[in-house]
Design a protein around this nucleic acid. Sequence first.
DNA 1: ATTAGGCCAGCCGGTCTGCT
DNA 2: AGCAGACCGGCTGGCCTAAT
Length: 432
Amino acid sequence: MAERRTRKPNGRSSIYLGADGLWHGWVTVGVKQDGSLDRRHVKRKTEKSATQAVQKLEKDRDAGKSRKAGRSPTVQDWMTVYLDTIAVQKVAPRTYDDYWSKTRNWIIPLLGQHRLDRLEAEHLDAMYGSMFRAKLAPSHVLKVHRILSRALKIAVRRGKVSRNVAELIDPPTADRVEQQHLSRGESRKVLAACAGRRNGARWSVGLACGLRQGEVLGLRWQYVDLETGDVRIWWQAQRNTWRHGCTDAHACGSAFHKKPCKRKCDLHKSTCPRPCPPGCVSHARHCPDRHGGGVVFRKPKGTGRRTITLPGPLIALLRQQRIRQETERQAAGSTWQDWDLVFAQPNGRPIDHRKDWQEWGQLLRTAKVRYVRPHDARHTAGTLLAEQGVHVRTIQAILGHSDVRTTEGYTHVSSQMTRDAAELMGSALWSE
DNA sequence: ATTAGGCCAGCCGGTCTGCT
DNA sequence: AGCAGACCGGCTGGCCTAAT
């Protein structure tokens, strides 16, 4: 006759007093990767606390919040997994690099060693405090928060942790900044200074049409109709970082890994670059099989492709540009690389954005106009159009915003417009 | 050997979209 | 309308290489 069974039915939790004098609890929360049962064990001094611990495990299990089997990863571990296996599939290369940059500089140094399941909202608050003390802009702190929050959200979804602590706190707030733009007079001065400069039309186009930097630098002749003045803004040039194409990225970069500088370093002017971490896999630009980097053409952000029409004087400028470029091409001979770019280096290759930025500064100095950022040329276009009374929807189409609210932010009501309005009001109310 | 310019990459922080 | 997420612009240091 079989002995009477005393054990609980399958799947039920058990609590018993062990031979060691402690109360043991076992809770089956699911099945492990290998198919075996995933049973969680707790050990307590009293029956009561063991029961409580078991109830907690059951509650988490029933709510679908049980941690996956195995030791919980640290924040550093998880960020690495999240970025390298999840984010890398989903986001654009530059975004991926950007996420890594913030993770490497802030999240890992300040939170990296925390176990993911033991991370508390207070730890995040402390990190943001450190960042603010380091004088980082609120927008930057906010972004780090969002990257972390996103990574934790995925961690919750994958059962690595039971809750997203980033959602428990108020994210840092970032104010909108005041946009700068040139006045009509200043714009005219800049346009005048463009005349005769090599690639001077680049800035005329930027100012008059409000193109983004990448859109101008990526503009190709095949998308420009010099007869009608129609320009198809279908692509923007962007510089991607290179990726290793070899099998051993660390060895590949061996000649370039940076060691810490001596205390008295006379090689670097201001700050010495930080040394490479052990096992560094950077320096992909030197990889003989490098890929994915350099100048690439991408769809513009915003509404994507759009077509604008150039003002008459600008068509003439671009015709001149074409002729000059032909001369340069002849001069370059076999060194000419044909990218079909409207604005290029003397050898036909794309203009580096750094060079472009320097040009803008020089141009403003030549024109004796106060410094504004290159991107402010875009704001200027929006504002000038608004001043001419162009409808905001039209400006939106020209600038390529998918949301008119963005355009409204660009095209501030200028002092000229308020003056005009005042004049109209004055004549409406007081003139004969 | 030195210099100038092109090129690359890192980082901060602003911009823009899509979702709700 | 506000927010999370994605993406990009701006700026800079420094390396590399060709020209001087």
